[in-house]
């Protein structure tokens, strides 16, 4: 990649930052060039973020209808899945899934909630109720 061809597309996923890329001058000598981003990268990151948004909106909608517990929503909000939440909370996957049942979740002790609170970085009082907006 020629140093003048390093994309400077000012992509939104960089949040105003610039990353370093390696590119060549006319003699083939390499140098580090800062880039404000490449559209191709923005599309790839964007589609991953859109998928996360979709999962979040979906979990929120189901939680607000009482089909799942707020836990699933907060898990998705923290960009985790059941496997990761299980690892970070130290609870078995089947237990995490069981806690997606609103009735079971409502009866959870603060001791168990504290493990979710620690894993998700969200305080217990917040975890108990669904946020008003997704």
């Amino acid at each position: 990649m020629d140093k003048d061809e390093v994309p400077q597309d000012a992509i939104h996923t960089y949040g105003g930052h610039r990353k370093l890329f390696y590119a060549t001058d006319k003699d083939g000598e390499y140098l580090g060039v800062q880039s404000s981003g490449w559209e191709a990268e923005a599309i790839a990151t964007g589609s991953a973020l859109e998928e996360l948004d979709r999962l979040r909106a979906d979990a929120w909608a189901r939680a607000s209808r009482g089909e799942t517990s707020p836990l699933e929503y907060y898990m998705v909000l923290r960009r985790m899945d059941v496997a990761l939440l299980s690892q970070t909370s130290g609870l078995w996957q089947w237990r995490v899934r069981r806690h997606f049942k609103p009735a079971v979740y409502a009866r959870l002790s603060d001791r168990v909630l504290a493990r979710y609170s620690d894993a998700l970085g969200i305080d217990i009082a917040t975890l108990k109720i669904l946020k008003e907006t997704p």
Binding site: M1, F21, Y22, A23, W38, E41, I43, A44, T45, S47
Partner: peptide, 24 residues
């Protein structure tokens, strides 16, 4: 499409210096 996006992210997004470390 998710799979293709994933490949490109691993190649470009995660700080590879471009082209999946080939330029580094």
């Amino acid at each position: 499409p998710l799979y293709l996006g994933h490949i490109v992210r691993m190649q470009e997004e995660i700080g590879t210096g471009g082209a999946g470390f080939r330029f580094i």
